[in-house]
Design a binder for these strands. Structure first.
Ligand SMILES: [Mn+2]
Ligand SMILES: [Mn+2]
Ligand SMILES: [Zn+2]
Ligand SMILES: [Zn+2]
Lengths: 140, 140
DNA sequence: AAATGGATTAGACAAAGTCCAAATTCTAGG
DNA sequence: CCTAGAATTTGGACTTTGTCTAATCCATTT
């Protein structure tokens, strides 16, 4: 929407803005997610980041993704039973989930209303509401 | 709602009604889910089924749960990044997910309306819509 | 340059789930 | 009742995702 120039340089600024010390590896991982604006698994990110040249270990990929998550730079999407997807979009939104390809497509939450949800159990508050629309090719 | 007498005997009928050959192990696994009407992981089911006496292998637990799912006797709930929950309720419904305890609570879908979802990508049909309300204790 | 604290790493480890070939159990026919 | 064939179950190897730890590396400060 607003800014769409995702270079490695302003990845460092983005990280600093979230109180994250920008290191080589962290910049590469952030760049992989933000430049593409896609939903990626840890394994995909590891492949992308190590594709060109530099080496980033599996431990660092997981460390970094969990760090980004804690600082609200990215969020997780739980939709595939076998792996977590990491999402550079932290704004309120939902997802189409293509059951055929595993692809995720964002749905802006601004246009969506959910009505008729029952009252929360006593002493509970809502942390968030996730809507997942599972879709597949019609000619399947 | 309707029937709430879940005995091992009518588990066999239930399995036959879904074209599943009722074996000892399948009856025990179905009984674990339907008598409790809870959302259980494969590991929890394995523990329950082997608790009293008989032995059921891990392979059979997974084989059976996948078989039940294929025959629409149960459904999966994908909400915890580390394990799948199996749900004896196949009617349309959503879930509260207690982030503290991992507990799932059903929300009947009859009362819930979702409006403002965008059009599906071309050539796609909806397989289902899942709503997950993540909740946590307010005094956290 | 040395010290320090943070970051990264290899590799061991754990947990969920799948796969396979062998063994068991079930079913039908004779 | 007995047996062949089919269906089911099983132990254990294997894969994948993710975590953990102790050693190493690196950046910043003095
Ligand atoms: Mn899994
Ligand atoms: Mn996992
Ligand atoms: Zn998204
Ligand atoms: Zn449910």
């Amino acid at each position: 929407m607003e800014k769409q120039n995702y270079t490695r340089d302003n990845m460092a600024d983005l990280l600093r803005a979230h109180d994250i010390n920008p290191t080589h590896q962290r910049i590469e991982i952030a760049y992989a997610l933000f430049a593409r604006q896609e939903h990626l698994s840890a394994d995909q990110i590891m492949t992308i980041v190590n594709d060109r040249h530099s080496e980033t270990s599996k431990a660092t990929v997981y460390n970094t993704l969990n760090l980004f998550k804690q600082h609200n730079l990215i969020r997780e999407v739980i939709v595939d039973p076998s792996k977590v997807f990491y999402d550079p979009n932290t704004g309120p939104h939902h997802h189409f989930f293509n059951l055929e390809t595993g692809e995720l497509i964002d749905i802006d939450a601004g246009d969506v209303q959910i009505q008729g949800l029952p009252a929360l159990p006593a002493g509970m508050v809502t942390e968030g509401v996730d809507v997942i629309v599972r879709i597949r090719p019609s000619n399947a």
